[in-house]
Design a protein around this nucleic acid. Structure first.
Length: 106
DNA sequence: GCAGTGACTAGTA
DNA sequence: ATACTAGCCACTG
């Protein structure tokens, strides 16, 4: 166990049907420049933890790709089950977005 | 302690 | 809009 408790606490605070970004979580956890570490922390999650890791996405409003694509698909399924909508490009719909993405959509 | 790595971001071309 | 680059910071070997 490492010092990721603040990160997990913040992630647990994300309401159902909403999403947050790595950078936002990092900032709220007190490590504004450690967005990458947030991803690492979630990856290190055993799964038994009660952490809604699927509500954390990148600044573009998309699900970040990782080694195994199956987990990305699972994340999308979990979000859709909570009522989070996706557009054709795989972006989260602004309706369910907690804040605006940094990049403009087409 | 140094080098490589990654579920990130912001900037530039 | 996409592709590449440079910072970023904690973990691993």
């Amino acid at each position: 166990m490492s010092g990721w408790a603040p990160v997990y606490r913040v992630v647990k605070r994300i309401p159902e049907g909403r999403v947050s970004t790595y950078g936002q979580v990092a900032a709220l956890a007190g490590m504004p420049r450690a967005a990458r570490q947030v991803g690492y922390a979630l990856h290190a999650l055993s799964g038994d933890e009660n952490v809604p890791w699927h509500r954390v996405i990148n600044a573009k409003g998309e699900i970040s790709a990782r080694a195994e694509r199956t987990y990305a698909d699972l994340q999308r399924s979990l979000l859709e089950a909570e009522g989070v909508g996706f557009d054709r490009r795989g972006r989260i719909d602004l309706e369910t977005y907690g804040w605006k993405p940094r990049v403009r959509r087409k």
